[in-house]
C-alpha cells in the first residue's frame, strides 16, 4: 500500500460502476460516489454527524481481486484498486427487502413510501404493528443532539423490535435546548411528532434556565 501512497500523492484510485474515480485516502465509498455524482440511496446518513451504518440502504458490492462482499458504502473506506458496484442482484435483493421492511415499520411516512416506490416496492409482506409510526430509528436525531448540539437530551431506549428514540422515562428532558436540530435532520416526520415528549410544552418551560 505504501508505494501506492507515493505514487498517487494521497489519492487512491478505484472503480465505481465501471467508472474510474479518485478519492482522498480517508474518504468512504459513499463520499467518493457523491463527489462523482454517482447516486447511492441513504436514510441514516448525514454529513453533519458520524455515519453509523444502521439503515443498510447504501449497501454496495465491493470487489478486491477474487474476493467480494456486500458492504455499507457510508462506512467502507476506499482502497486502491477497489471495485464497487452499486446495483447488483445481491445489492438489489438487500435494498428491496429493506424497503419492504420500512413500509411495515413506518407506514405513516410518505417519504418512505416515495422512496420505496422509486425502487418498485409498493407493498409489504411484513406485519404492520403501528400504523401511525414514522420513525425508522436511523438515529440521526440522537447523533445530532450529541455530536453537534452537545446536550444528549435524547437517546435510544430498549433494544431490538422494542427499540425507540426517547428521553429518559419518556418525560420532557430539561437538558433539551429546543434548538430543533433533531427535527431538521429527521428524514421523516417522526421527530416532529415526538417533540412534546422531548421538550415538553415550551410555554410551560420558562424559568428552567435554558434560555439560549
Amino acid at each position: 500500500m505504501s508505494d501506492n501512497k507515493e505514487k498517487t500523492d494521497g489519492l487512491v484510485s478505484l472503480v465505481i460502476d465501471g467508472q474510474p474515480v479518485q478519492a482522498k485516502e480517508d474518504w468512504t465509498v459513499l463520499e467518493t460516489a457523491r463527489h462523482n455524482h454517482i447516486h447511492i440511496p441513504t436514510l441514516c446518513y448525514h454529513e453533519a454527524v458520524q455515519a453509523n451504518g444502521g439503515c443498510r440502504l447504501c449497501v454496495v458490492e465491493a470487489k478486491e481481486g477474487n474476493w467480494s462482499k456486500i458492504v455499507v458504502s457510508c462506512l467502507y473506506p476506499v482502497k486502491e484498486g477497489l471495485q464497487i458496484s452499486t446495483s447488483t442482484a445481491k445489492v438489489n435483493n438487500v435494498r428491496r427487502w429493506i424497503l419492504e421492511m420500512l413500509l411495515a415499520e413506518c407506514p405513516a411516512s410518505k417519504e418512505i413510501r416515495t422512496l420505496a416506490e422509486a425502487y418498485g416496492v409498493n407493498s409489504t409482506r411484513f406485519k404492520i404493528d403501528r400504523p401511525t409510526e414514522q420513525c425508522l430509528l436511523c438515529g440521526l436525531c440522537v447523533r445530532v443532539c450529541e455530536e453537534v448540539v452537545g446536550v444528549r437530551a435524547i437517546s435510544f431506549g430498549s433494544r431490538g423490535v422494542n427499540k425507540q428514540v426517547a428521553t429518559p422515562y419518556m418525560v420532557p428532558n430539561n437538558a433539551c435546548v429546543a434548538c430543533g436540530s433533531c427535527v431538521t435532520v429527521c428524514p421523516t416526520g417522526a421527530m416532529q411528532a415526538r417533540l412534546n415528549m422531548v421538550r415538553g410544552n415550551v410555554s410551560e418551560r420558562t424559568g428552567h434556565g435554558h434560555a439560549h
Binding site: N52, G53, G54, C55, R56, L57, V94, W97, I98, M101, L102, A104, E105, F126, L136, L137, G139, F156, S158, R159, G160, V161, N162, K163
Partner: peptide
Amino acid sequence: CGKCLPCRL
C-alpha cells in the same frame, strides 16, 4: 440490538 434494519425487522 435493533441498530440495523435487516436484523431488527
